[in-house]
Design a protein around this nucleic acid. Structure first.
Length: 591
RNA sequence: UCCGCAGUAGCUCAAUGGCAGAGCAUUCGGCUGUUAACCGAAGGGUUGUAGGUUCGAGUCCUACCUGCGGAGCCA
């Protein structure tokens, strides 16, 4: 595919860039290059275009055949000679390298160490004509990255729909999929989706008969590349639309299963791989992304070290719940983790404040809107901390998440028709309820006839109880001092009331249930030994855990927060199954 | 595991025990501003499976399968 920029334009851009961005350090990672070369609003693809387009011609005929190194300073693989590289580097300090047909590769395979040991990159497919290079060093300039040469089709002046408002009057090329189509005798309206938004593209018949027919021929979810002029239009929900001047059909799709009409959950879940393209699901997953981002930022910015815990574990964390059993090379059984907590206690003793973030597995046969068999959990653990510290920490985390979602995901919340006032009402401090008081409250609720069940001290809350409690406040509420008998073996107990454990739960409002569970861990070796025996747990499996009490035991505490429940609450949606890209539930393992 | 509900065209759903239907999707035709576009036409069915009752079963009965909701357990 020929470059759409003229040679002169490319040279100009190249020169401008080189004049302003000279190398200064010894090592250059992609991040440095991007920040130097690329204007702030640009996507990496733009950088690729600018850096590499002019080299496209030099390297226009990539080959699968790896050529041998011709000198030690510039080793090249995959169809590019050292002379080509020398020419490429002439007047060009940086080159980016892309590999393969996936944009993900473009992003990640940049540092030399990432690239070096791979076999030659076979990059030829029907729509790719990249060459892959592999550079080590040249002259005194410490160019250490392999770089990417051109990905014309996916990097040429790519504009994203979310940025269109800044391009009014300009001609842009959008790459995406056909979300929906409407047509009349002289007009075709293409709703184009590119992952960042949806924009209406208008094809007017008298402008081009050929274009009109092409536009009329494509089916829902066809992949298309549309060129056109950005026009302000008050009829559009995003304020702009596109007057189409060019249309390239990458793949024409027919009989897309998910129509714009209603569908049932089972059907949609069977087509989950396609369903995530639709507006609402897209919005939910964007909110999930922000929940995760806020969570990670919160811990990273508060001195926590990420120390992930194993997914294969030798034994139950809390013997009671059901585990997925996995054959581990025949002789051994392994179990998929249901919590990283015990390991977090080890990492907290190493880092002071640590957290784990990863998938968790529960083989419970739960069929409710709050359950998945595979879900993601973030679990902080802090040395020298009490259960009260954990309530402070959990409160801070939730506030950070709510704030981030409200700031970054306004559009998505609108799509989801979320009552934003309910999220805006979330503010510190969250009420903190002793279990005794919670029980009293539930019993009062029963007397008033608002709760069917008359709650007895000593039990765990049911879904109705949790909802009732959180409805009394309109914001998340902590409950602490749960009965020791219903909690895990590792909980610290209240010295004055040993029947109460220093556990905390955070109940989300609006019936979303428990989103945080945790507490203070028992610090005494003797107590834990007794507990392990009392809970009928295999002592050998916990020897390493007991070591944490033998060598520098300290009071410490932590909790786990369920990403999906939190996301469901933020989105105001009924069921957690829509808050994860590919849910795993009782009776659902596909797709 | 237990309790309740459902299964009919690709999808969403109708059909007193009496001819198997509609909307969307698909294909074709029409329309200069549609936005779940609209108008016209066509194709599309082993009514979840297996038995039973009946002159006759999508409809009633039994078992099974699948899914949904809830309980328990949990984040």
């Amino acid at each position: 595919m020929p470059s759409r920029l003229s040679r002169g334009e490319l040279d100009d851009r190249q020169d401008r860039r080189d004049a302003h961005h000279r190398p200064s350090g010894r090592t250059h990672r992609l991040g440095c290059i991007r920040s130097r070369v690329v204007p702030a609003r640009s996507h990496y693809g733009t950088a690729v275009t600018r850096v590499a387009c002019r080299e496209t011609k030099i390297l226009s005929r990539p080959s699968r055949r790896a050529r041998p190194a011709e000198d030690r300073r510039s080793r090249v693989r995959c169809g590019v000679s050292a002379a080509d590289v020398a020419a490429l580097l002439e007047g060009c300090r940086y080159v980016l390298i892309s590999i393969g047909s996936s944009r993900k590769d473009t992003l990640h395979t940049v540092h030399r160490s990432d690239v070096q040991d791979r076999p030659a990159f076979g990059a030829q497919s029907s729509h790719v004509s990249d060459a892959k290079l592999h550079l080590e060093t040249r002259d005194r300039d410490p160019i250490r990255l392999g770089i990417l040469v051109r990905y014309q089709q996916y990097t040429m002046k790519q504009t994203y729909i979310k940025d269109l408002k800044g391009h009014i009057g300009e001609t842009v090329t959008l790459k995406g999929w056909l979300y929906n189509k409407r047509s009349s005798g002289k007009l075709v309206f293409l709703q184009l989706r590119d992952g960042t938004g949806i924009v209406q593209c208008v094809v007017f018949r008298p402008n081009s008969e050929e274009l009109f027919e092409a536009a009329n021929s494509i089916g829902q979810e066809s992949s298309i590349i549309v060129t056109g002029t950005v026009k302000e239009d008050t009829r559009s929900s995003i304020g702009v639309e596109l007057d189409v001047t060019g249309l390239e059909i990458v793949q024409n799709s027919h009989e897309y299963p998910i129509t714009p009409k209603e569908h049932g959950t089972e059907f949609l879940m069977d087509h989950r791989h396609l369903w995530i393209r639709s507006k609402k699901q897209h919005a939910v997953l964007k909110v999930r992304h922000s929940v995760i981002k806020a969570t990670r930022d919160f811990f990273d910015n508060n001195g926590f070290t990420l120390a992930d815990t194993p997914i294969f574990t030798p034994a139950a964390c809390e013997g009671t719940t059901t585990l997925f059993e996995v054959d581990y090379f025949g002789d051994d059984k392994a179990y998929l983790t249901q919590s990283g907590q015990l390991y977090n206690e080890a990492t907290a003793a190493a880092f002071g404040k640590s957290y784990a973030f990863g998938p968790t597995f529960r083989a419970e046969k739960s069929k409710t809107r709050r359950h998945l068999t595979e879900f993601w959990m973030v679990e902080p653990e802090v040395a020298y901390a009490s259960y009260e510290d954990m309530m402070d920490l959990g409160e801070g985390l939730i506030l950070a998440i709510v704030e981030r979602v409200l700031t970054d995901r306004q559009e998505e919340l609108k799509v989801l028709e979320r009552d934003i006032a309910k999220l805006e009402a979330i503010s510190a401090p969250f009420p903190r309820l002793h279990y005794d008081d919670a029980v009293n409250m539930l019993r009062e609720g029963h007397e008033k006839g608002e709760l069917e069940n008359n709650f007895e001290w000593g039990g765990d809350f049911g879904a109705a109880d949790e909802t009732y409690l959180s409805n009394q406040f309109g914001k998340p509420v902590f409950v602490h001092h749960f009965p020791t008998a219903i909690k895990g073996f590792y909980f610290e107990v209240d010295k004055d009331r040993p029947e109460c454990a220093l556990g905390i739960d955070l109940l989300a409002p609006e019936g979303y249930g428990e989103i945080i569970g945790g507490g203070e861990r028992a610090a005494s070796l003797e107590y834990l030994e007794k507990q392990i025996e009392a809970h009928n747990l295999p002592r050998e499996a916990f020897e390493w855990y007991l070591d944490l009490r033998r060598y520098g035991s300290v009071p410490h505490a932590g909790f786990g927060m369920g990403i999906e429940r939190c996301t469901a609450w933020m989105c105001g949606i009924e069921h957690v199954r829509e808050t994860i890209p590919f849910p795993r539930m009782l009776y659902r393992l596909k797709p």
